[in-house]
Design a binder for these strands. Structure first.
Lengths: 141, 141
DNA sequence: CTCTTATTGCAAATCATTCGCATTTATATT
DNA sequence: AATATAAATGCGAATGATTTGCAATAAGAG
């Protein structure tokens, strides 16, 4: 999935291609395997000598999420975002040191469904998050 | 695990047994299979004709969490809490309607470890959350 | 029963995120 | 290419969840 694909997905959803959206997308692509906080994103923008208002960043994170272009996970007190690199159902293994994530498709849905049914529940969705330390971070500890 | 066990665990951690802590624990026991929001907890307290300051509730949720007496999950904008009913490693299946939770011990740790190792990560911990609708709620939809 | 220290309640602060609104800009349409 | 129009931006202010400082209170050790 390249830049133009992303742009046309946004257009298909009826969103305009603004300068600030392009800036955001650039950052997500550059940091494609990291989960970024809003602060990380803002720092990255500033590093490029630009500035986007926080409300613009938040509004566009929603836009990108609605367009299924990014993944969101909830950290203690805030959210982290990463560009989606697959359209398939997937989960993440995340480095507690640097936020670097590995995407994987393993998911024992059949087991989950049976746990749900056994308890009289209708199963709708699952969340798996694995945590650890990546190669770099585990050697720095 | 009964009231006295809980009280002595708190004492062992060096925490005092205050009236407000007992009130909180009572509520968690009464609602033992529900994930409660802070608002839920406060409503329940008021229902009993009492009142605890929000800061007291929050501080004591930390105390109970540090003592491994409750589980916390993160909802969209806030946190939910439930009394721990097992000391073993476990996960939850949660009703999106009413918050009723089922605790289960299924966890493919070996698979998780191998996903991590395959990617050069050291595996430290996992989170699985299943969502659905419980018996009652699915019939109300 | 007294002393010491943790805990409480209150008010104010903080932090992430959202919202209202006037201005600007992307883009569909002349 | 110029224009119209609705969406998007930036700003400042609001919100909502949670935290903190502090003086008053209460638990529990001795």
């Amino acid at each position: 999935m390249n830049l133009d694909d992303i742009y046309s997905i946004l257009s298909d959803y009826g969103y305009k291609l603004t300068r600030q959206r392009k800036v955001l997308i650039d950052i997500f692509i550059k940091k494609r395997d990291l989960f970024l906080s809003v602060e990380d994103i803002q720092n990255e923008i500033n590093k490029n000598g630009m500035n986007l208002d926080l409300s613009t960043i938040y509004r566009n994170l929603s836009v990108l999420e609605n367009s299924n272009l990014i993944c969101k996970i909830q950290k203690e007190n805030s959210n982290l975002y990463k560009i989606r690199t697959t359209k398939k159902h997937h989960h993440h293994l995340i480095c507690k040191g640097c936020g670097k994530a590995v995407t994987f498709e393993y998911c024992p849905t059949d087991v989950f469904t049976s746990i749900a049914e056994k308890n009289g529940y209708t199963f709708t969705d699952d969340k798996i998050e694995l945590y650890g330390y990546c190669n770099k971070c585990k050697n720095t500890l």
